[in-house]
Simulated assay, not measured.
Amino acid sequence: MSNLRTFDLNLLLAFDVLMRERNVTRAAECMFVTQSAMSHTLHRLRQQLDDPVLVKSPAGMQPTALALALVEPVHGLLREMERLLESPQAFDPSSSQRRFTIAATDYMEFLLLPELSGLIDQAAPGVDIHVKRTDSAFPLAQLENGSLDVVLGFASMLEPPAHLRCEHLFVDRMACVVRENHPTIHNAPSLDDYLAMAHMLISRTGSRVGFIDAKLAELGLERRIKLIVPHFLSAPLMVAQTDLILSLPYRLAAEFQKLVTLNILPVPIDLPDYELVMIWHPLWEKDPAHCWLRAQISAIGRKIDANEIRL
């Protein structure tokens, strides 16, 4: 008998039909081939199984002992293959108990998660969301094995491998904020004004060098960073109660302005806009549940992108 590497798996369907019909002519009709073609297929089956498979008798064609032993396993295998090749079942958010895992910075959490959570509460009450912090190393293995569904963040910082799917969500631009009635800064600061101020830096790693500091260094300049905090949450309260200036993405500054009284001003340095993206693995491209999650995030991203940056 042939082993699996040399066996023609296309013969299994013909075997299943032959065992059911036990007649070459009827089997040929079921498979929409000629009787000659089916006879040839039966010949190939006999060769590969090294067994007569079907033999003539006064009662018609009868299966051999080996053929009988293979009937149920082959039939079950074909039904399982049929199931696997069927279109995936539609995802019903209203009844799903799915859990999605998202890797995101606190910036993306702040902008996206409130609306996403509200939407899921209404449309998919049984669905759970687990948000993980993005690490310095890109989580490729987690995206491949399905323990992570999507990654959200700045395209320039994530630098995903080229074979992954990457969708634009929105853009943002650096701005700075100071408290209302600041003693020295009331309008857009000049570069000299900006450098003369005491700065606050949000750095989750504790580094004293941010993106702006790298840009200033290219110009041979340096700012004084008086306060470093690891999280966005405390930043607006500290700025509102001090004379510090904080540089951060505009859309985050606009959200902070809803919580405390702050003035949003342009940063006096030529900086490129940021692109915020959603990344996922092509393995899950057609998964209906995964498609649904991405559609919700995409819709929120479009709404954010539609809000003009006013600097």
Rank of each mutant, 00 (worst) to 15 (best):
residue 86 E to V: 04
residue 18 L to P: 11
residue 166 C to D: 09
residue 76 G to S: 03
residue 274 Y to V: 08
residue 84 L to V: 13
residue 250 Y to V: 01
residue 305 D to E: 15
residue 263 N to W: 09
residue 182 H to P: 02
residue 66 L to V: 13
residue 300 I to E: 06
residue 81 M to I: 15
residue 178 V to R: 00
residue 80 E to T: 01
residue 59 A to F: 02
residue 79 R to M: 06
residue 93 P to W: 14
residue 290 H to A: 03
residue 307 N to H: 04
residue 195 L to W: 00
residue 283 L to E: 15
residue 129 I to N: 06
residue 113 L to W: 09
residue 188 A to I: 00
residue 140 L to S: 09
residue 54 L to V: 13
residue 174 M to H: 13
residue 36 S to K: 06
residue 232 F to S: 14
residue 263 N to H: 00
residue 247 S to C: 00
residue 168 H to E: 07
residue 135 D to F: 01
residue 190 S to G: 12
residue 285 E to Y: 12
residue 183 P to C: 07
residue 299 A to F: 06
residue 309 I to C: 14
residue 11 L to N: 15
residue 222 E to Y: 11
residue 188 A to Q: 08
residue 270 D to E: 10
residue 205 T to F: 11
residue 254 A to P: 00
residue 174 M to I: 03
residue 86 E to A: 13
residue 160 P to W: 13
residue 236 P to L: 00
residue 301 G to L: 13
residue 111 L to C: 14
residue 30 C to Q: 09
residue 128 D to L: 05
residue 43 H to G: 14
residue 46 R to N: 05
residue 108 M to Q: 10
residue 216 L to I: 12
residue 293 L to F: 01
residue 116 L to W: 05
residue 253 A to R: 07
residue 272 P to K: 11
residue 103 A to E: 15
residue 229 V to Y: 05
residue 300 I to C: 15
residue 227 L to P: 10
residue 35 Q to S: 07
residue 22 R to A: 02
residue 226 K to E: 08
residue 190 S to D: 02
residue 124 A to R: 11
residue 109 E to I: 07
residue 7 F to A: 07
residue 273 D to F: 11
residue 294 R to Q: 15
residue 97 Q to V: 14
residue 71 V to K: 05
residue 137 A to Q: 15
residue 98 R to F: 14
residue 268 P to H: 04
residue 199 H to A: 01
residue 95 S to Y: 07
residue 283 L to C: 10
residue 253 A to Q: 04
residue 203 S to V: 04
residue 152 L to T: 13
residue 206 G to S: 07
residue 132 K to A: 05
residue 282 P to V: 02
residue 23 N to T: 07
residue 175 A to I: 01
residue 70 L to E: 07
residue 263 N to K: 11
residue 210 G to D: 00
residue 257 Q to K: 06
residue 209 V to I: 14
residue 44 R to H: 13
residue 63 P to N: 15
residue 157 M to W: 13
residue 1 M to L: 13
residue 229 V to Q: 08
residue 182 H to V: 10
residue 13 L to K: 14
residue 68 L to A: 01
residue 148 L to H: 10
residue 201 L to V: 05
residue 257 Q to V: 06
residue 69 A to Q: 05
residue 292 W to P: 09
residue 240 A to V: 01
residue 22 R to D: 10
residue 246 L to C: 13
residue 175 A to L: 12
residue 19 M to E: 01
residue 119 L to W: 09
residue 292 W to A: 06
residue 150 V to D: 10
residue 178 V to C: 02
residue 139 P to N: 05
residue 235 A to H: 01
residue 31 M to D: 00
residue 64 T to N: 05
residue 236 P to D: 02
residue 71 V to I: 15
residue 215 K to I: 02
residue 113 L to F: 08
residue 293 L to E: 12
residue 101 T to W: 05
residue 61 M to N: 04
residue 183 P to N: 02
residue 260 V to K: 04
residue 224 R to C: 06
residue 72 E to C: 03
residue 147 S to G: 09
residue 124 A to M: 02
residue 229 V to L: 01
residue 195 L to G: 00
residue 255 E to Q: 09
residue 106 D to Y: 10
residue 266 P to D: 08
residue 94 S to Q: 12
residue 69 A to R: 04
residue 214 A to F: 08
residue 306 A to I: 09
residue 96 S to K: 06
residue 254 A to K: 11
residue 104 A to K: 14
residue 197 M to Y: 03
residue 55 V to F: 04
residue 309 I to A: 09
residue 46 R to G: 10
residue 203 S to G: 01
residue 39 S to I: 11
residue 11 L to P: 14
residue 110 F to Q: 14
residue 74 V to Y: 08
residue 151 V to P: 15
residue 8 D to P: 03
residue 29 E to T: 15
residue 37 A to P: 12
residue 9 L to H: 10
